[in-house]
Write a protein that binds this DNA or RNA. Sequence first.
DNA 1: TTTTATTGATTGGTATCCAATCTTGTGGTT
DNA 2: AACCACAAGATTGGATACCAATCAATAAAA
Lengths: 256, 256
Amino acid sequence: MSSRSQAIADILTRAIIDHRLVPGCKLGERELAEIFEVSRIVIRQALIRLADDGLAQIERNRGAFVARPSMQEAMEIYDALTLVEQGVAAQLCDRLGPAGFAELRQHVERQRQAVSSGNDALADVLGQEFHTLFVRLSRNKVMQEIHAQLVRRTTLLRSLISADFDYCNLLDDHQRVIDLLEKGRLKPVMELIDTHHRSVVRGYIMDRQVFPELTPREALQPYLDGKADEAPKPAPRKKTGEGGGAGASRHVHATK
Amino acid sequence: MSSRSQAIADILTRAIIDHRLVPGCKLGERELAEIFEVSRIVIRQALIRLADDGLAQIERNRGAFVARPSMQEAMEIYDALTLVEQGVAAQLCDRLGPAGFAELRQHVERQRQAVSSGNDALADVLGQEFHTLFVRLSRNKVMQEIHAQLVRRTTLLRSLISADFDYCNLLDDHQRVIDLLEKGRLKPVMELIDTHHRSVVRGYIMDRQVFPELTPREALQPYLDGKADEAPKPAPRKKTGEGGGAGASRHVHATK
DNA sequence: TTTTATTGATTGGTATCCAATCTTGTGGTT
DNA sequence: AACCACAAGATTGGATACCAATCAATAAAA
């Protein structure tokens, strides 16, 4: 096993991408130290890792918070993600063999089943994983890590924006990417990737006031003492529109 | 100022990309703690940052070493760098205005002067910075950071390989990228970027035995007490194939 | 010479303490 | 009531001392 701080950083990362720890949430050293039954120093090391990953921000003498990217940064993250996936697509266009295409199709099929059986949570996860699988097929670990980090940050962003997904649409995009790629039609693939991500971003309105729906203690409870594997609790989504929202905007469905 | 550990991580990073700390070099906590007159904890935090950046690797109960990427990883890093710069080129092809092109040309001109005046060290730095400037023009901070990290890692790789640069050739590449980009000829630009990086990698033979030419104490001396700004000592390149540490094996973190 | 055991050094981590800074609550002033 | 100043408390960043586990390197034994 690697270090304790790495393990804790992993758990915190998990909690953040599960939307159990929302942007802006204070990550107090003492509190986390008590939760994980570990000294403050180990916590601080974990927080440094999170900050390096862009998932937390540490303010001197104020402590660490779950990152709250600006709209600008959100755009940049999606732009970067698009750039990376387009580049990978260009590489795969030449190099991907039949086995790779089969793997991609199989994944899409699994997600399709999840959608049709109404398992939205699973469909969401599989939708994310398609992108990860896509990059993994490039067989470039460095690229994989960069991409994974960007994906984590987009997942964090989804805590900040209010919208539901139109899984079918995104799923169709995945299917089309595979088909086009197999035909060697690179240009439409790259445009599709662009619009795919843009469709996720467009229409999303950032809700700058995010209230901590769970305290860190509540959020982290399911991950403790090794239950992490079997208890990937999805996000308990509380309906927006209570006291603070200023009653402005509500969810926007991605255009079909 | 940010935290002490960040400052130390920055100095170590500097020392590594200056080739004063070479791959495989042991980064002992106690030793560094004495050098920087700081507690071991701060050092460990700095080392965590370095490891997250891919510049160091931490082995449990063995300590931290300057990273020694494998040939495979070296290829992946260059592939990733190519992918990123190609993507940025595609973006700039549409979005870059006259001011941007002027900035690029001015930079190339500066490097040309450095080359013709025989200042190889400066030319080397400027050659690197061209790529940084290129990405900065995309105005995407996230992408910039990813790219900067990749560049640092390639710089680290250059400690492992034995070859000198043909500055003129690389300089011409930069010039041609600008010209082609201005004409909107994206495809040749992307091929040029590819061959540009490939020309750096190809022919390079990884010298797996890298002897620490400087002890950490010697390597870090110039960066201490704020002299960092004005003393960017270049790498003291000692010809390979000597008795090195005089038999007194400064551990080299032997592979296998 | 090879193998084994012991010793020493280094790391990962805890507990405790301290200074600097931030936050908060209080009280006085307008 | 609103507002500012200021003291008290809490939190962070860091130092020091200490301990257990593990790795490395030697010394001893076969």
